[in-house]
């Protein structure tokens, strides 16, 4: 996201370079650029902006999705903020951020630190390999992990294999471990994305920089901190934004693996929106949660961008 902002700031502004001519034509020309954007704009407004407003509008009604809705004003929002179940769901989503975002970024940085010191052969192969989890649909990922976490699944087989019999359990059915177990699925899915981003970011770095640091007698750690890490600032911001949004808006992995159970240990806002709107016939309340969730995500993304901005 911040990479995009940066690009915009640095790009020359066309209108400034075009000599301003007096009269209407110059004004027209200024708007000519918008004509090119129009198709995309229409598409975006129709399918993204308007539905968003419509959702916000729906959140002011009590509506079962079929019969006539009744206007309730901000009542749904009152319910969203007062119901402890919904607050817990937000808490779960925030915990998932650690698994979907922080751990994958750390893993990504570690891998890049190991791989970036020298040009290695077969880098493309690694990139493809790390990116694989990204191209598998999350529903398939969820189903696979549901099997792996099962009573006789791979996870328990491995534990038994190393003699940790006492530690085996049906992970997704355990009140204490279900949420971290779901989180680790996210870690697996997101780590590849982070590694991929960082690996391509590090390839931009001039190798002479590494040489210079090495001549100054720096070790691997020093090299990583002085050269690699600052160079990856933009990529880290992108990775953090994408993965944080994925964690807060998570639905598919949770839905497929636990459906929010056991109890309500793994409910997340996305799951509540789906349940309320589609199976419980409370569309207004679902819309209100969606609006609150969107605001929360926007705030956090904004904060991430502020913190990782390169230029003051």
């Amino acid at each position: 996201m911040s990479a995009l902002t940066r690009l915009k700031d640095e790009a020359p502004v066309p209108s400034a370079r075009t000599p301003q001519r007096a009269g209407g034509r110059g004004g027209l020309r200024r708007y000519k650029g918008y004509l090119w954007v129009l198709p995309a704009l229409v598409f975006y407004v129709t399918f993204a902006i308007l539905p968003a407003f419509h959702t916000a509008y729906l959140s002011l009604f009590d509506w079962d999705g079929v019969t006539l809705a009744t206007w309730v004003g901000l009542e749904n929002y009152g319910e969203v903020f007062s119901n402890p179940d919904y607050r817990n769901a937000v808490g779960h989503a925030l915990l998932l951020v650690a698994f979907f975002s922080w751990i994958p970024i750390l893993i990504g940085l570690l891998m890049v630190g190991l791989l970036s010191r020298h040009r290695r052969r077969g880098m493309t192969f690694y990139r493809v390999l790390f990116f694989l989890p990204q191209i598998v649909p999350l529903v398939a990922v969820g189903i696979t992990w549901r099997w792996m976490y099962g009573d006789d699944g791979v996870v328990n087989q491995l534990l038994r294999g190393v003699g940790l019999d006492g530690f085996t359990r049906a992970w997704l059915g355990d009140f204490d471990f279900a949420l971290p177990a779901v989180g680790l699925v996210g870690t697996w899915a997101m780590s590849g994305l982070c590694m991929m981003l960082f690996l391509s970011g590090v390839q931009k770095v001039d190798t002479s920089l590494y040489e210079a640091v090495r001549l100054d007698g720096a070790g691997a750690v020093r090299e990583f901190v002085t050269v690699t890490l600052p160079a990856l600032r933009g990529e880290i911001a992108v990775a953090m934004t994408v993965t944080t949004v994925a964690a807060l808006a998570s639905f598919d992995i949770v839905y497929v693996t636990t459906s929010g159970g056991p109890g309500s240990q793994t409910t997340v806002p996305g799951l509540l929106v789906y349940r309320l709107a589609f199976s419980e016939g409370k569309v207004g309340l679902a819309a209100a949660i969606a609006v609150v969730l969107s605001c929360l995500i926007l705030t956090i993304v904004f904060a991430i961008n502020r913190l990782t901005r390169t230029d003051p």
């Binding site: 056991p262 109890g263 409370k282």
Partner: peptide
């Protein structure tokens, strides 16, 4: 009721785990 299913399955899980 439409909302019973989710409360029922999560409640049953809580009963089994002795959490409710």
């Amino acid at each position: 009721a439409p909302a019973t299913y989710d409360a029922l399955s999560s409640g049953i899980q809580s009963l089994i785990a002795g959490r409710m």
